[in-house]
């Protein structure tokens, strides 16, 4: 009870911050993030099960990307504890791969597809170790997995949006991580890319790796993911898709803004 209160207040005890959840791929307690005076995410708890595929959904401005970025230390958090495989973020970076929103970088940057994928190996390469044949081979293999091997020597600005997204995914694969965090991986991509990406993600799950993705397309949540985190600044619902992805929860998360016909398409139970 006191523990529950403490996490609700956004504070954890530093000595034993996450209790028995500490072995989970990702556990977050009392996360609060604010841009200016308005909280973007307020006192959010989240637990990601090993080997699961979790969709983070919610309306625009609900704090989905912010949650991801705060977990990764890209934006500062006002409060909250984050544990990755039972360790603080700094100690578990090599087990995390991150795919940012495609629009967050300048694709005119003078570099080739293969060079972007090699960036995923930089923790191994360090500052000065030269890129060797086996590094290059691994980068090619990752490009193969997303169907982009033939584009290895292209300048990244010459790719379509979907191809760029696949290159980002290949870079994450090169990191060889156990936990994959993706920010809107399906935003603005063509159908073939969407297929290729979901196949790769399901392949990661089959290997026992864990996937968390900010997702915007409610119609594919059931097909693509097994867990869902529904947020609108606060957490609305969390759990297996079958239990948490209900009309009630969606209406609460989206503030009643979802049209009835969309609800029908989603074939939801739980009135």
């Amino acid at each position: 009870m006191i523990d529950a209160l403490r996490t609700a207040m956004g504070r954890g005890t530093p000595s034993d911050p996450l209790d028995s959840l500490s072995d989970k791929p990702l556990a977050v307690r009392g996360l609060t993030v604010s841009y200016g005076d308005k909280p973007a995410v307020f006192s959010l708890d989240m637990t990601v099960e090993p080997g699961s595929m979790t969709a983070i959904i919610g309306p625009n401005g609900a704090g989905k990307s912010t949650t991801l970025k705060a977990v990764l230390g890209i934006v500062p958090r006002l409060s909250g504890v984050v544990s990755v495989f039972g360790q603080p973020l700094a100690a578990s970076r090599r087990r995390i791969a991150y795919v940012p929103q495609r629009a967050s970088v300048d694709w005119d940057f003078p570099t080739r597809v293969i060079d972007v994928v090699l960036m995923g190996l930089v923790r191994e390469l360090g500052l000065l170790r030269p890129v060797r044949g086996h590094h290059r081979q691994r980068a090619f293999d990752c490009l193969d997995r997303v169907g982009m091997r033939d584009f290895a020597d292209r300048q990244i600005g010459q790719l379509s949006g979907g191809q760029q997204q696949r290159v980002f995914l290949a870079r994450a694969l090169a990191q060889g991580a156990d936990l994959y965090l993706l920010d809107e991986p399906f935003a603005g991509v063509d159908a073939a890319t969407e297929r290729a990406i979901i196949d790769v993600l399901k392949g990661l799950k089959a290997e026992g790796r864990t996937v968390v993705a900010v997702h915007h397309d409610l119609s594919t949540v059931r097909d693509y993911f097994d867990h869902v985190l529904m947020i609108n600044v606060h957490k609305v619902a969390e759990g297996p898709v079958a239990e948490a992805f209900t009309e009630d929860n969606l209406q609460r998360a989206y503030g009643g803004r979802l049209a009835a016909n969309l609800m029908d398409q989603l074939q939801l139970g739980g009135h």
Partner: peptide, 21 residues
């Protein structure tokens, strides 16, 4: 020369560079 990789990666994709530590 020495900071080539951090300079290049953080110039191209700052968020990714941060996640790398």
């Amino acid at each position: 020369l020495v900071f080539w990789r951090p300079l290049k990666i953080s110039t191209f994709d700052e968020d990714f560079a941060r996640v790398l530590g």
